[in-house]
Amino acid sequence: HNGKLCKLKGIAPLQLGKCNITGWLLGNPECDSLLPARSWSYIVETPNSENGACYPGDLIDYEELREQLSSVSSLERFEIFPKESSWPNHTFNGVTVSCSHRGKSSFYRNLLWLTKKGDSYPKLTNSYVNNKGKEVLVLWGVHHPSSSDEQQSLYSNGNAYVSVASSNYNRRFTPEIAARPKVRDQHGRMNYYWTLLEPGDTIIFEATGNLIAPWYAFALSRGFESGIITSNASMHECNTKCQTPQGAINSNLPFQNIHPVTIGECPKYVRSTKLRMVTGLRNIPSIQYRGLFGAIAGFIEGGWTGMIDGWYGYHHQNEQGSGYAADQKSTQNAINGITNKVNSVIEKMNTQFTAVGKEFNNLEKRMENLNKKVDDGFLDIWTYNAELLVLLENERTLDFHDLNVKNLYEKVKSQLKNNAKEIGNGCFEFYHKCDNECMESVRNGTYDYPKYSEESKLNREKIDGVKLESMGVYQILAIYSTVASSLVLLVSLGAISFWMCSNGSLQCRICI
């Protein structure tokens, strides 16, 4: 991952900044910058967002509201009850120091605090018919004063009620008058409520006091790749198909172990950190130390980045220098085999997901714990399936590479015959000098055995068991695999060879 928040398929997220979902939807004055928000790819909250409900109280069923919003990608904020005409018999300019803005008392931008007009609070009834052709999110509140005197001074009615009804919602609220500790300079409380109004449905408000009335509502448009994440990451000019709280993932790998919460087309989250597919040879310690064997393909974004291909070729060293050249036929066979294998694994496992966190309130801790156990169970199954699949494929890959290298080895052996000696570690020792032209003939299969047989015969008789390297004779190393990324691999195959001279070296080696 890149540690950044990015656009998702070209669409920017909605960053709530210092506000949370509650503050944004109710219209906390400190969240005025969010009022123009219309569309987004996903919503970003920060872990310690401080601006929620400015007048103390709870947004009821907040967790369910977050779940609903996680599939919303755009909205239209509109005046559901026009301020100047909807409440002619009531005062609608209630403000509070708890919702101060720029040093002055204020109130929510989407709600109206209705109080008595003169000395009376006549029963009010108002309704709205949803003609938007889509779901409408309606929010309101109920004020709970701290004393009967406060109730009387604001609403005149000691036994007030609030009723809200639609086809799918029907509740009646009565204020709970009680002494409470002071929070944000208030002994009173406000509880906030919401409902989704279906197209064509009607919502009716009736009250004799204590109503925090809707002013603006939201017509919602769903987008199934949307979601809500909690993150401290910063926004950058970048684009992605998959976003996590820790950063964007741009990967076609089937798995990731970065974060379980994802938005967009994302690899499946697994616990494993070692889900690797081999593309090189079986481990040979001396070669492995030099980083030549054991190439791997990573299938977990965050564990290993991208696929690494092994390729086969020849390396030689003689009086004229040293050089490398790919054996294109065996390399292409290996590439085709690995590509098919990788595609097979991805096809089997690479279903892209959006995974969002589930919200539970403080009273639902047991449910949250149960949900976590269920999620953990599914996660263990996914991890096991992934590891088992790759384990089985790896064994076949190792066998496949062994065969490829063996074929190259036999190709060289059949040409050199007794003009060189096998020394048991995949290397041959020449009994004759071999210049670049000679080396090329070994690589392309045109090695002239009779041409060098007499010199080889004489050297075999002279050496008589002495280690060949100390006599200045020449080696050919018969097994060799270097490691390159897919891009470098293609470039390498396009070149005939490249040279690395070893000044004054008397050794001649050709490596497979």
Rank of each mutant, 00 (worst) to 15 (best):
N232I: 13
N232S: 11
A233V: 11
A233H: 06
S234E: 15
M235N: 01
M235V: 14
E237M: 05
C238G: 07
C238N: 03
N239E: 12
N239V: 12
N239H: 13
K241L: 12
C242G: 08
C242V: 09
Q243D: 08
T244Y: 02
P245S: 13
Q246R: 08
G247H: 09
A248K: 00
A248F: 02
A248D: 05
A248N: 11
I249R: 02
N250R: 11
N250P: 00
N250T: 15
S251R: 03
S251E: 08
N252M: 01
L253E: 08
L253T: 06
P254A: 07
F255P: 04
N257P: 07
I258A: 01
I258N: 13
H259Q: 02
P260Y: 11
V261L: 09
V261T: 09
V261Y: 15
T262P: 00
I263M: 11
E265W: 02
E265R: 13
C266V: 10
C266M: 09
P267S: 01
P267Y: 07
P267Q: 02
K268E: 03
Y269G: 02
Y269H: 12
Y269R: 00
R271V: 04
R271K: 15
R271D: 05
S272Q: 08
K274F: 00
K274H: 10
L275T: 04
R276K: 12
R276V: 12
M277F: 12
M277L: 14
M277D: 09
T279F: 03
R282N: 05
R282E: 11
N283G: 03
N283F: 07
S286R: 14
I287M: 15
Q288I: 09
Q288C: 02
R290Y: 00
G291D: 07
G291K: 04
G291W: 09
L292I: 15
F293C: 03
G294D: 00
A295I: 02
A295H: 04
A297F: 09
A297G: 11
A297N: 03
G298Q: 06
G298V: 03
G298W: 12
G298Y: 05
F299Y: 10
I300E: 02
I300L: 14
G302I: 04
G303L: 03
W304I: 08
G306Q: 12
G306D: 08
G306C: 06
D309F: 09
G310R: 15
W311V: 06
W311T: 07
Y312K: 06
Y312D: 04
H316D: 00
Q317A: 08
N318P: 07
E319I: 05
Q320M: 08
G321F: 02
G321Y: 04
S322H: 11
G323N: 13
G323S: 13
A325C: 13
D327Q: 07
D327H: 11
D327I: 15
Q328A: 13
Q328N: 00
Q328R: 15
Q328E: 07
K329L: 10
T331W: 02
Q332R: 03
Q332Y: 05
I335Q: 06
N336H: 04
G337K: 15
G337Y: 00
I338P: 03
I338E: 10
I338Q: 03
I338V: 15
N340I: 12
N340Y: 02
K341G: 04
V342Y: 08
N343S: 15
N343H: 13
S344K: 03
S344R: 03
K348V: 14
K348P: 04
M349V: 14
M349C: 03
T351M: 15
Q352T: 06
F353S: 08
F353W: 12
A355R: 07
A355P: 05
V356I: 11
V356R: 14
V356A: 15
V356W: 07
K358C: 09
E359V: 15
E359S: 11
N361C: 06
N362H: 05
L363Y: 11
L363E: 07
L363W: 08
E364I: 08
E364N: 05
K365D: 04
R366L: 09
M367G: 05
M367P: 03
M367Q: 13
E368K: 13
E368Y: 03
N371A: 07
K372M: 07
K373A: 07
K373N: 11
D375F: 10
D375C: 06
G377Q: 14
G377M: 13
G377T: 03
F378M: 10
I381Y: 04
I381P: 02
W382N: 06
W382K: 04
W382Q: 06
N385W: 13
N385F: 07
A386F: 01
A386M: 06
A386D: 04
E387W: 08
L388I: 09
L388E: 08
L388K: 06
L388P: 05
L388V: 12
V390D: 05
L391W: 11
L391A: 08
L391V: 12
L392G: 01
L392E: 04
E393C: 04
T397D: 14
T397H: 10
T397E: 09
T397W: 03
L398R: 15
F400N: 06
H401V: 06
L403G: 09
V405L: 15
K406F: 04
N407V: 07
N407Q: 13
N407D: 08
L408G: 03
L408M: 04
Y409Q: 09
K413R: 15
K413G: 10
S414R: 14
S414L: 10
Q415K: 00
N418V: 13
N418I: 03
N419K: 14
N419T: 03
A420I: 01
I423A: 08
I423G: 02
I423S: 14
G424K: 12
G424W: 06
G424M: 11
N425E: 06
N425F: 05
G426M: 10
C427R: 15
F430Y: 11
Y431T: 09
Y431D: 06
Y431N: 13
H432W: 03
H432A: 04
C434D: 01
C434R: 13
D435C: 08
D435N: 15
N436T: 15
N436C: 10
M439F: 04
M439K: 10
E440A: 15
S441F: 11
V442T: 07
N444M: 15
G445K: 11
G445A: 14
G445Q: 07
T446Y: 06
T446H: 00
Y447D: 07
Y447T: 07
Y447C: 08
Y447F: 11
Y447G: 04
D448L: 06
Y449H: 12
Y449W: 08
P450T: 08
P450M: 10
K451R: 15
K451D: 00
K451G: 13
Y452D: 07
Y452H: 11
S453G: 11
E454Q: 06
S456H: 00
L458G: 14
N459P: 00
N459I: 15
N459F: 10
E461Y: 03
E461W: 06
E461D: 04
K462Q: 11
I463T: 03
G465W: 13
V466C: 05
L468C: 00
E469T: 13
E469A: 13
S470Q: 12
G472P: 15
G472I: 08
V473S: 09
Q475W: 02
Q475V: 13
L477N: 01
L477K: 11
A478W: 05
A478E: 04
I479D: 09
I479N: 06
S481Y: 06
S481I: 14
T482P: 04
V483R: 02
A484L: 13
A484Y: 03
S485W: 03
S485P: 05
S485Y: 03
S486C: 07
S486K: 08
L489S: 06
L489H: 05
L489R: 00
L490Q: 00
L490F: 02
V491Y: 14
S492N: 01
L493D: 00
L493C: 04
A495M: 02
S497Y: 00
S497W: 07
S497N: 10
F498L: 10
M500N: 10
M500V: 03
C501Q: 07
C501K: 04
C501F: 13
S502E: 13
N503F: 01
N503Y: 15
L506A: 06
L506E: 01
L506R: 01
L506T: 10
Q507H: 09
R509S: 13
R509V: 09
R509D: 08
C511G: 04
I512G: 00
I512E: 04
